[in-house]
């Protein structure tokens, strides 16, 4: 049984918070909170060549969809840019190549925008390997390979309320599952309230480096109220996707944290930026009572 991954994540966040709150606490002491210690400045960034950005999450039973965009200078105004000259080919485990159609739209389930789409629902089982090939007319070429991980089942969901009354009465949630002993495994846990179309209430990734083969327990703080509907999704992910998620988090944290070292994003694709992976997850829905 392993509870401490969540706590470790909490700890890391607390340490980060601590390192930033120390000076802030000092400032409070001298009444400096009223002082304006931030200001806009002009920054001239060097030219940054645009790279293709690919985001593709294959899922068995779902028609494959993919979003292609491109990187931009950080301070440029975000303008919707649709790349119309991009061709996408997915190679199935059988060797069959499937060219995606350019049909920009929005996924009704996930609310995500996409630019390209396959023809049929995906047929995939754990161990199947897919290849992605994305090209444009400017010579930019992104390639990626992804293998579907095995499915890990959530053994149980346990919640417990605190001793407080009325509005302050909250419950924490424990998610338990068995980690396979034979492999190095990586997971992502998402907890949505009410609908998966919204941002997850909890979202973190972890590995089994210190608890290989054990019964894993992931938990939350006291945060859920009576009658909350929770959608708990446990993804069993591969290492490249795990590293991508971690590096994205590190890169975002480095912007605004004077103690963090800047981290480069570790894409799962070559020739550009982004992620190509096959999702393997188990989802359970519960109502907290």
């Amino acid at each position: 049984m392993n509870f401490f991954f969540y706590l470790l994540q909490q700890l890391t966040r607390r340490v980060r918070t601590a390192t930033r709150l120390g000076p802030l606490a000092a400032l409070l002491l001298v009444g400096a909170t009223g002082c304006n210690l931030q200001k806009d400045i002009d920054v001239e960034l060097p030219a940054f060549p645009a790279q293709l950005v690919v985001e593709c999450y294959l899922e068995p039973g779902q028609v494959p969809r993919l979003t292609v965009s491109e990187t931009a200078p950080y301070l440029s105004v975000p303008t919707p840019t649709l790349l119309t000259d991009v061709s996408v080919v997915l190679t199935h485990p059988s060797g069959q190549k499937e060219a995606f159609r350019f049909t920009p739209g929005q996924d009704t389930l996930t609310q995500k925008l996409y630019t390209h789409m396959g023809k049929n629902p995906l047929v995939a089982k754990p161990g199947d390997t897919f290849q992605l090939d994305v090209k444009d007319t400017h010579g930019r070429h992104v390639k990626g390979t992804a293998t579907m991980p095995s499915s890990i089942t959530i053994d149980s969901l346990v919640w417990k309320f605190n001793d407080k009354t009325a509005e302050e009465r909250k419950a924490y949630l424990l998610v338990k599952f068995q980690d396979p002993a034979a492999t190095a495994d990586f997971y992502r846990l998402q907890i949505h309230k009410d609908s998966i179309s919204k941002d997850p209430n909890r979202d973190f990734e972890l590995d089994d480096r210190l608890t290989n083969g054990q019964l894993m327990t992931l938990g939350t703080s006291y945060r859920y109220s009576t009658n909350d509907t929770l959608l708990v999704t446990l993804y069993h992910i591969d290492q490249p996707y795990y590293r991508f998620l971690q590096s994205v988090s590190d890169a975002q944290n480095a912007n605004g944290n004077p103690f963090a070292q800047p981290a480069s994003v570790k894409s799962t694709v070559e020739g550009g930026v982004g992620v190509f992976t096959v999702l393997s997850y188990h989802r359970r829905k519960i109502v907290i009572r």
């Binding site: 940054f48 645009a50 950005v53 985001e55 990187t71 931009a72 995500k112 890169a251 982004g274």
Partner: peptide, 8 residues
């Protein structure tokens, strides 16, 4: 950071 991309 010199560049950025949007992640959905």
């Amino acid at each position: 950071p010199q560049g950025r991309f949007f992640m959905q």
